[in-house]
């Protein structure tokens, strides 16, 4: 997060032109390599990873905690979205009436995001805040504990099964470009994820609260002296991070149409990797990392190496960090040791 504003002017100028050029080049390369359908698969998967990764990176940026429970917050969100769709909206499948669909989706996203934001803040209050001044690894262990608790609450109330999520947005709507089938659902997923990311960036860079978050991440004591309410700022970070996980949960449900209580672990691990790859603490980096990992995974499956997908992702991570120890966009001065 520290680099979002940039401290060194030359780097900032370079970043303005360099980064978009690299991203465009990478996307073009992937499009050529994978073909349009796989490209779309990767972008969709990447959008979900990116939304989860944002929560990891924001929390890490501000309190240096690897929030192992974050993946499970995402998992819980998928179940909350089921409850909202079926109980609140009374929908169990595709909504074909466009106005109803729009209203349903707005309600679905809003309610789930709000509920998950509150859940996230509650977890912070109960399990992390009491340990604010404890040894660094103590909250890591409570995070693991919370992860266990969330998984098993869901398992207890819903069952240990894979559960269906109503796909309000029809999976059958699609058009074709040339040979390729383009489902509208994928475009909707990518679009809504990008929209949320832009809103987040604006919030962080333009609002007073966003500034408080950035300064707290840079130097908690100094910000406190400058009148920033640290506890409130951290709480807001959790609200936003968990809210984004909530949105990711809704999107996962709409796109895949199912969920299970163990969903959070794998997705969380991948998203966390994305956050690190992007330069942990940096929101734009986390989003980029999410897409990058999705491209690697989809690429592996596209060429018949799905078995090795996980190994390729993590090998890439290890090698990448050796050559660029602070991640894609991590600041070279961000010494958090």
């Amino acid at each position: 997060m520290a680099t979002a504003t940039g401290t060194v002017r030359t780097e900032r100028v370079r970043g303005q032109f360099f980064l978009p050029a690299v991203i465009t080049g990478f996307l073009a390369l992937m499009l050529g390599l994978l073909g349009f359908e796989q490209f779309l698969n990767a972008m969709t998967l990447g959008a979900i990873y990116a939304l989860i990764a944002l929560g990891y990176t924001m929390v890490y940026g501000i309190i240096e905690l690897i929030n192992f429970a974050h993946g499970d917050v995402f998992m819980v969100a998928t179940f909350v979205s089921i409850a909202v769709s079926t109980t609140l909206l009374g929908q169990t499948g595709a909504v074909l009436d466009i106005p109803t669909l729009i209203i349903s989706l707005i309600v679905l996203f809003t309610v789930t995001i709000v509920v998950m934001a509150l859940v996230g803040a509650l977890i912070e209050r109960l399990a992390y805040r009491p340990l604010r001044n404890a040894p660094k690894l103590a909250p890591l262990i409570t995070a693991i504990g919370v992860s266990f608790i969330l998984q098993n609450i869901i398992q207890f109330f819903v069952g240990p099964y894979i559960t269906n999520v109503p796909q309000l947005f029809s999976t059958q709507w699609a058009f074709t470009i040339g040979e390729s089938r383009v489902p509208l659902l994928n475009l909707f997923v990518i679009g809504s994820a990008l929209f949320l990311m832009v809103v987040l960036q604006l919030f962080i860079s333009r609002t007073k609260t966003g500034r408080a978050m950035r300064t707290t991440a840079m130097d908690r004591d100094a910000s406190s002296l400058m009148g920033v309410d640290i506890n409130r700022t951290i709480m807001i970070t959790f609200l936003i991070g968990s809210g984004l996980a909530g949105a990711a949960g809704v999107i996962h449900g709409l796109y895949y149409g199912n969920t299970t209580f163990t969903l959070g672990f794998q997705s969380g691990l991948k998203a966390f990797t994305a956050a690190v790859l992007g330069g942990i603490g940096n929101t734009a980096g986390a989003a980029l990392g999410g897409f990058l990992i999705a491209f690697v995974e989809v690429g592996a499956a596209a060429f018949g190496f799905g078995r090795w997908g996980g190994a390729i992702v993590f090998s890439l991570l290890v090698v990448f960090l050796i050559f660029r120890p602070t991640g894609l966009l991590g600041s070279s001065t961000g010494d958090r040791a």
């Binding site: 499956a301 799905g306 078995r307």
Partner: peptide, 21 residues
Amino acid sequence: LGREGAPAGTTDFTAIVTAAK
């Protein structure tokens, strides 16, 4: 035509299906 592995816990089968298609 093809053989692919997807370990337990895989949720995203889209890439495999697109490749198979």
